[in-house]
Every structure is written in structure tokens, then in C-alpha cells.
Design a protein around this nucleic acid. Structure first.
Ligand SMILES: [Zn+2]
Ligand SMILES: [Zn+2]
Ligand SMILES: [Zn+2]
Ligand SMILES: [Zn+2]
Lengths: 136, 136
DNA sequence: TCCAGTTGTGTTATGCTATAACGTATGGCA
DNA sequence: TGCCATACGTTATAGCATAACACAACTGGA
């Protein structure tokens, strides 16, 4: 789905990114581990270390509210600004979007309170369009 | 700090709320357990079950990004609207605030994409005013 | 009164998420 | 060559959350 190329990804990092990228939805670290056992992965740390780097590169996002990871849908693009995620609790579909207005409001709260922000999380959980239709 | 009274809190629920309310910052479930061992608490489930109810009553918030819980700073007040949290990673101080503009923007994204939101998380991690001064 | 349903509780065991601590291997560079 | 930084592999452990079972207390109606 996304551009899988990046300067100097190591083998493990590339494998983890590929696993995330070819998954339908977000994956937990242990699900990634299971998906990569036949590539030689044995221990959670192999996954977490790769994820740390991929997060640093901005190629992967961590979804705090569900302890899972997704490949970035728009790499190269949203650089390091604040991103919001809509997560379907039924099918796992994740949509990322940015909103300058929201970002600005949160930034001004921080400025007004002398709060030095380092990372902002915005996650909406619910039902995606398709799954909402099916609901009772 | 906050109003500790609520219709029909059970003993365990009241104890957990009191523990959170008298803590300096957010507490993990196991920290609450440890704090309540001398009140007879023995197992994590005693804590989690009380927390479930307190969350339902809106007396406690869960901070998804740090797997911890805080007593609501404004019970009775912000009812069930979306709340944002600023969490100091140094001293643990948590500030809650609501922003109708932010809430509205996220709601309109959801409406535009036919996404049926059930719970929205907004958490800003960083340094509070006091701790930012001390930083190198 | 008795029964059934609901809610809270206690306990044991288990599962899922993440990191500590150790040693090894590799590549760039003075 | 010696040094440093980075990645890797493995074992063990820490931290967070729930499943499953059993029992007690209350509630409302037959
Ligand atoms: Zn992205
Ligand atoms: Zn869906
Ligand atoms: Zn609150
Ligand atoms: Zn602070």
C-alpha cells in the first residue's frame, strides 16, 4: 500500500515494515513476531527494536489506545505534525488525518499553560462506514 | 481534591477512588493494588472491576498512552464530552481540559466519513510548566 | 415465602505487552 | 590496529489485563 523504500532499512526493519504494510489492520508486536517466525524471528525484542527505528523514521505509527502498530498511510508526507487516527473496532481499519485547526488549538492551550509538548495522541475509536451499516 | 461522594459507591469502588484522588499523579492498576493491600485487596481484578465502574460513572479517567488512571478533576462537570489531557512525563501532573472547537472538528471529520465514534482520546505528553523550567 | 436474576466479591490461573541484561557481530574511522 | 557506534540474538523478567469459577448479598415478582 505505501512506499516501502527508505534509506538504509536493515533486514529486520524492512521485514517488520512489510508485515505491517501487508496487514489489513493494525498489528500487535506479538502478531508481528508470529508473522515473521518463518523469517527467523524468535524474540519480541527483535520486533520492538525494529519498531523503535521505524517509529523514529516516521514510517510506522503506534496506536496507544489499542497497543498496536500500523504502517504510515502517507509516508514522506505528514512529516512530524500531529496526526489523528480513526480506528474501527470491528474490522480494524485505520484512517489517518491531520487537522491544522485541532493542532493549533492544542498548541495554543500548551502555550497558554507553558506546557512543553513532546508527543500528542489523538485517537477516535468506533465503527467505520462499512461496519456501522452492519450494526444492529 | 475532588468530590469523593457518589450515589452508591461500593466499598471497593470508594477505596480505589480515594487512592486515586489522594495520589499526586496517575496510578497504574498494580500501584493501586499495592496502595490498598492493607485494606484487604489481594488481586488485580478487585482493582480493575472497581475501575470499570468508576470509569462508567465518569469519576475516573484512563490515560491510554501511559496505561494509568486518574481521578476526574471536575466530576459532575464535563459530563460525557471529549476531554483532552496534558500529562507531564517528569512529575506526573495531569491537566484536563475540554475544547469545543477541537471536539467539533473531530466530530465533523467523523460525520464526513460516516464514522460512528464511540470514544475519543486526546493526550499530550511533555513537561509541565514547573518541570520545563528545570530542564537542561 | 421462595425463587430467579442481577451485581458485587474473592481467588487462582493465565495471557498479552514491553523491557532488562547479557553477549556477539559488523562497519566506519582515527 | 584499536576504538566506537549500531544492529543483532537470546534468556529472563517486569508490567498490564482478563478468563473462569465459586460464593454472598440484594431485588423484584410469583
Ligand atoms: Zn502516517
Ligand atoms: Zn470497520
Ligand atoms: Zn474529568
Ligand atoms: Zn511536571
Amino acid at each position: 500500500m505505501t512506499a516501502l523504500s527508505h534509506p538504509d532499512l536493515t533486514r529486520n526493519q524492512a521485514l517488520v515494515l512489510k508485515a505491517l504494510d501487508s496487514a489489513e489492520g493494525p498489528l500487535g508486536a506479538y502478531a508481528i513476531l508470529d508473522a515473521l517466525r518463518d523469517k527467523g524471528f524468535r524474540a519480541p525484542l527483535q520486533v520492538y527494536r525494529a519498531l523503535d527505528k521505524l517509529l523514529e523514521f516516521g514510517l510506522v505509527h503506534r496506536l496507544e489506545s489499542i497497543n498496536a502498530f500500523v504502517a504510515c498511510a502517507h509516508p514522506e508526507c505528514h512529516a512530524h505534525s500531529t496526526i489523528a487516527f480513526a480506528i474501527c473496532e470491528k474490522c480494524g481499519k485505520v484512517s489517518e488525518f491531520g487537522d491544522k485547526e485541532v493542532e493549533g488549538r492544542l498548541e495554543s492551550w500548551a502555550r497558554a499553560h507553558n506546557f512543553k509538548a513532546s508527543k500528542t495522541t489523538i485517537e477516535i475509536r468506533g465503527r467505520c462506514e462499512k461496519c456501522a451499516e452492519e450494526a444492529a
